[in-house]
Design a protein around this nucleic acid. Structure first.
Lengths: 193, 193
DNA sequence: ACCTGAACACCGTTCAAGT
DNA sequence: ACCTGAACACCGTTCAAGT
């Protein structure tokens, strides 16, 4: 039967979950799909584009279209929490989405950025600065979660008992950084431009 | 004559500057040094460790030991500006340092983190939160600069005229995000813990 | 239109053996 | 102690040729 983009992304995602990014190669993916490596290049221009599609699949768990909550601080908080949860629910999820975002291959991250900008404008900052604030938040969420996930996966792999202060209540730690950013936005929404 | 770590890092850095991360391979590096690939593994455990050494070389331009300026906001600002400048002065510098930082292979980034924590404590936040604030700043600087650099390199390579709002005064844009974070730290340094 | 086969030009890492 | 040679087990991508 025919190979469809959907099947490719499905299998790629399960490969990611089971073995991580290092083992998510075009050749291995083709093997798993029982096609030749070249077949993938009929459906995707290159590996980056394929990874972008997998990133967008991971991000389907993030609701980027829900009605505005009216409270911008809450809006940012819940969106970022959803984003972090989505990344943590796949092996190397943060690394994958970071790379795809950096390469400009994730449509979904574009939407996240849009929602965050909207929230910042709602807070009362100008639209140029709202875009900047949104990006700052994204850098934080991706950086924090990639860090968290690499530690999680590191001491899930045998290296027990190394749990430092880092492993205690990551959600609270995550929320703290977010509060820092939200406070910053608050400050810049009144008085000075 | 003998191969020393210093020579390896020297040549690796010039390879990075001339061809970028994608072409900084162990085999290519060995070729350039007129040794066999295996020789590198006498001096470095693996590629990650070697890249960490190159990252630390890039970061020698960042002064992590200067006397405290007394003004923590200025201290954070100048350190981050130095960091960004250092990254921008090597091809794929931000990507390299990001990866090495994530892999825990950069001694220098550890020192940057320490200096930022100290500045946050000086601002009046608790030491646990100071560590978090420092990481948040690092995620921002690395994320912003990697983004900036990839755009710079992209439209240095032929794709002219695509200059959007992104390319106008990146330094001012960088400073804005930094101000956001510094404001956030200010807020959390008084009243609430 | 969609895929195979086979090639091209590479990788990182290991390790017996040499000096 | 330090390095070579050669191997192992892979990569991403292209493209004529097949159906």
């Amino acid at each position: 039967m025919q190979l469809h983009k959907r099947d490719v992304v499905d299998v790629a995602t399960s490969l990611l979950d089971d073995y991580g990014m290092a083992d998510l190669s075009m050749r291995r993916l083709a093997r798993e799909l029982n096609v030749s490596p070249g077949a993938l290049y009929w459906h995707f221009a290159n590996k980056q584009q394929l990874l972008g599609a997998v990133a967008d699949r991971v991000l389907t768990a993030v609701d980027t279209a829900s009605a505005d909550p009216g409270d911008w601080q809450l809006g940012i908080g819940s969106l970022c929490t959803q984003l972090r949860d989505a990344l943590l629910s796949h092996t190397d999820g943060a690394e994958l989405v970071s790379a795809s975002f950096a390469a400009g291959q994730s449509r979904a991250m574009g939407e996240v950025l849009g929602r965050l900008s909207a929230a910042a404008r709602e807070a009362g900052v100008g639209s140029t600065q709202a875009e900047l604030a949104a990006r700052t938040i994204v850098y934080y969420v991706l950086g924090f979660t990639a860090d968290e996930q690499s530690r999680l996966q590191w001491d899930a792999a045998g290296a027990d008992l190394v749990e430092t202060v880092w492993d205690e209540d990551p959600s609270a730690r995550f929320a703290f950084g977010l509060r820092l950013l939200i406070s910053g936005i608050s400050v810049h929404s009144r008085s000075d431009a």
